[in-house]
Design a protein around this nucleic acid. Structure first.
Lengths: 230, 230
DNA sequence: TTCCAAAGTCGTCAATTGACGACAATTTGA
DNA sequence: TCAAATTGTCGTCAATTGACGACTTTGGAA
């Protein structure tokens, strides 16, 4: 039953598959896995979650077969990329800073959204998130949405406190009001990184415009919403 | 009628490709092509621009080969779907209505964004547009962006007229201010149809919140922008 | 009825693509 | 020094997938 053990005794006659750049150095398990995940996140962000394992392996400078020593299936690999790059992109410190009442709300919001846009709403993050959203398998949308929900509620209650207004009871409406600012900023990042538009006005100025508009209309918006409910 | 019974007699020899529903009736060229485009737009919106021609053909109730009687390549088919569904989704009447100064700006904006969200920012439109944006081939983004640019400028100048303020010279900044509203509404549609979130508050109310916030903060936003420039 | 152009299908090819068994090369430790 | 463990590659399989040549079916005009 050992048919071809002798027949296929071949050496690597030609040069390795990676002529340029990457010398295939041997790496311990954990390191190689980390390297694959690192490269894979850029790779899938660029070419979509359906991009081929062969090209990814090539980009890593390793054989395609080796990928399967670390991840049982391609789907597992994609899921790990998603967990690391998407879910892991939220900083807990933002929640703390947004509730630091020694600073003005305009200051807190401006700084937060500048940071958030630069660090989380990157091209890579947005593309991965969008590819994942479009694929039926909703990787882990609940976790994301619960983070954003919390964020919106913190922003709304902090702003209400500074403005001296009381929020209505309906939490869906509260969140929707928070989305006026958060959605506008998110959409700015989307059209910048996904639509390749809106490059003219620098981030700081955009954030300032958005935050100002939000704060100026805040009291009125909350009051309208409260009246509407009754 | 005779024709009908004939049609029923006519069964493909074995199990026809479509057992349920679609009888493979012979259609003239133009009709069949229109039918394919119609089904293809839903199909590609659901499964992405990389979805397979065989499944599309199955959904149309025709053989895969027949697709190539109408479209030289799959790419051409996708491009036609894009042109029909994405570019063709903007109504010229919106521009007229937005400039009807017999109505209040709040009224005009509310009605426009309700219409626009319901008729253009649909699940199908958003998914097709996003798939196209993510693929490197930027189908026709210039056309879209020029429409939106015009729209933003109309909204900004009409609102400025009603509020009795003067817009700054920098058209990039003017557009960015228009994006505060347009982006927030667009993002509402995105999270509703692409992220499957934000279903709780009905469209009318969301539009009202967004439009109110925009109009309340408008004069202040424009003034801040004008000061900033100098 | 006859004939033909249009409408439609079958079967296949070549290139991809996820997955994996078998084997080779290198490191490690006693 | 040598054998086990670890790291890595080769080659291949089966299923997909875009594309298309060759063929069959159909309806209407002469």
């Amino acid at each position: 039953m050992k048919a071809k053990s002798d027949a296929l005794r071949k050496r690597t006659r030609k040069n390795g598959p990676e002529a340029e750049g990457g010398t295939t150095t041997r790496l311990p398990h954990a390191e190689r896995k980390a390297q694959i995940l690192e490269i894979a996140s850029d790779f899938f962000a660029d070419y979509g979650l359906t991009a081929q394992t062969r090209r990814l392996a090539e980009e890593c400078g390793i054989s395609q077969r080796l990928l399967y020593r670390f991840f049982p299936t391609k789907e597992d690999l994609v899921a790990e990329v998603y967990r690391k790059e998407i879910v892991g992109a939220f900083k807990a410190v933002w929640f703390v800073e947004l509730q630091d009442r020694s600073r003005s709300m305009e200051d807190r919001l401006s700084h937060f959204y500048e940071d958030y846009t630069e660090q989380t709403l990157t091209r890579k993050w947005l593309r991965l998130f969008m590819y994942a959203s479009l694929s039926e398998s909703s990787m882990a949308p609940d976790y994301i949405s619960s983070i954003i929900t919390q964020l919106l509620e913190v922003i709304m209650s902090e702003t209400a406190a500074e403005c001296g207004v009381e929020l209505p009871d309906d939490r869906d409406v509260i969140r929707e009001m928070g989305w006026t600012l958060h959605g506008a900023i998110s959409h700015y990042a989307i059209r910048r990184h996904l639509y390749h538009a809106s490059q003219a006005v620098p981030l700081k100025r955009v954030v300032k415009i958005q935050v100002r508009l939000f704060l100026n209309g805040f009291a009125d918006m909350v009051q309208s919403a409260a009246e509407e409910t009754g």
